[in-house]
Design a protein around this nucleic acid. Structure first.
Length: 432
RNA sequence: UCCCGAGUAGCUCAGCUGGUAGAGCAGCCGGCUGUUAACCGGCGGGUCGGGGGUUCGAGUCCCUCCUCGGGAGCCA
């Protein structure tokens, strides 16, 4: 029995007889010669067979292969420039390990509704594979970035009793005799507690928003990474963000060239992503927008159109900082230089990808925080533990949240966030 | 929740001011020794999203419901 090798290992076995297992991507035949391309997750390989070179039953088996059948190919590995990947297999025998009749996703055009209904099979497509590889690289880069800088990963609960922020709609479930529980839409408040224990921390997990959003930028379940740093001001926070984003982009450029090529990503756009990023205060931004014809009033948040105007013509992400208190969450620290505003920032990605980060310095004054909780009409008793952090050694601290799927969409140059996660959860999609 | 748009062959779509449905691809059969979404010839394939209405006649016009897509709001 020949030894099975992963396709990626074959360059080291040129000239040898090997076996490969994989799924059939395409077949082509030309009378007396036939080709098959198989994929095993490490790469793809073209197998060639000549009718005159093998027994008739082997030829018959080869020419009747169907798309996505799982097969074992045996033959000799050969360097061949005509073959994609440079190595080719001269097939001497083959067997079907798992048959596949009428695979629904043919190598022709399909709409996304059709493909999403078959997401479990769509994942096998080249483009989807490339996206999943880039996502994996981004996640590994995120973990390395924080680990290398002494951050501790702290996993925060997904089932929560209190409501994280005032804004947003939460998924609800019954929780034994304790009433309602909610799926977390942020780990931040818990992370602030851990921050007082470990100094530099982050959480990274799924987060849930029950908003009835139907846009290319929204999922109901998405992954968010949230660092929190003790003794860090809003300025420090933005410096961390730009270093972080530049690191992620550089890492993908370095290690996922093949995938970016498969995705036809214009990498010059990514090469431009170096710190520092431009910073515009909210107040400045409003003034700029008004000269460009926007009807925005100071005090309200930017609409989608305003947001794209702010990024227009820039080749780097841009920070918008210090928004009006009324437009932001209760936990953000009041700006001592302008108490109408809070110390916070959004980070808008270039090329129209919009907000990928929201961050802030946190309110560390007990009484001001309590006043905000009351002002926003939040259930005060649910925040007792959170207020405790301001009673026992309160401290300056800041953090932010980065949306993983939005980041993957930007880095891969994809028009829609739903392909950035294996099984997207959207308002009208719970299957597969 | 609101505003647009779309549901016609397995897939992607065309079908004009109403006259009883068409293309490309896929599939199947045949041909071709180097193909890269191969190519050439042939064949089969439809309750036009559901229901109701107008009309001699509806894929086409009207009403209604369903499903999906995009956007707004909200946010990562």
């Amino acid at each position: 029995m020949l030894t099975r090798h992963w396709i990626s290992e074959l360059p080291a076995h040129v000239g040898q007889r090997v076996a490969v297992h994989g799924w059939v991507m395409t077949t082509r035949s030309s009378g007396r010669i036939a080709f098959v391309v198989v994929r095993d997750g490490t790469g793809s390989l073209q197998g060639v067979i000549g009718k005159a070179d093998v027994a008739p039953e082997v030829w018959e088996r080869f020419t009747s292969l169907t798309q996505e059948a799982c097969v074992r190919l045996e033959g000799s590995a050969r360097a061949d420039a005509r073959s994609p990947g440079g190595v080719e297999l001269s097939v001497t025998d083959l067997s079907v390990l798992g048959s596949s009749a009428d695979f629904p996703i043919t190598p022709k055009e399909h709409g996304t509704a059709f493909l999403m209904e078959r997401r479990h099979l769509w994942l096998r497509s080249r483009r989807q594979i490339a996206i999943m590889r880039v996502r994996d690289e981004i996640i590994k880069a995120i973990r390395d970035f924080f680990y290398d800088r002494g951050f501790a990963l702290v996993d925060t609960p997904i089932l929560t009793g209190s409501i994280g922020e005032s804004a947003g709609t939460l998924f609800e479930t019954e929780y034994f005799d304790l009433g309602k529980a909610y799926l977390a839409q942020t780990g931040q408040l818990y992370l602030e507690s851990a921050c007082a224990a470990l100094g530099k921390v982050y959480c990274f997990g799924p987060t849930f928003r029950a908003e009835k959003s139907k846009t290319r930028r929204h999922l109901t379940e998405f992954w968010m990474v949230e660092p929190e740093v003790a003794f860090s001001t809003s300025d420090d926070n933005m410096r961390l963000q730009e270093e972080f984003i530049a690191y992620i982009v550089a890492r993908v450029l370095d290690r996922r060239k093949e995938e970016l090529k498969e995705l036809e990503r214009d990498t010059s756009k990514l090469e431009a992503i170096t710190a520092p990023f431009p910073r515009v205060s909210y107040t400045e931004a409003v003034a700029q927008l008004r000269t460009k014809g926007s009807s925005i009033e100071w005090g309200s948040d930017f609409g989608a159109e305003d947001e794209s105007r702010l990024v227009e013509g820039r080749d780097k992400p841009v920070f918008i900082f210090n928004y009006p208190k009324s437009a932001k969450a209760f936990y953000m620290k009041e700006n001592p230089d302008d108490p109408r505003t809070v110390l916070c920032n959004d980070c808008l990605a270039p090329e129209g990808y919009g907000e990928i980060i929201g961050g802030s310095q946190r309110e560390d004054d007990h009484d001001k925080l309590l006043a905000r909780i009351r002002h926003d009409g939040l259930a005060e008793e649910a925040y007792g533990w959170y207020l405790d952090l301001r009673r026992y050694g309160t401290f300056v601290h800041s953090g932010f949240g980065l949306g993983v799927e939005r980041t993957v969409a930007w880095v891969t140059g994809s028009p829609h966030i739903r392909e950035m996660i294996a099984f997207p959860r959207m308002m009208y999609r719970l299957y597969p």
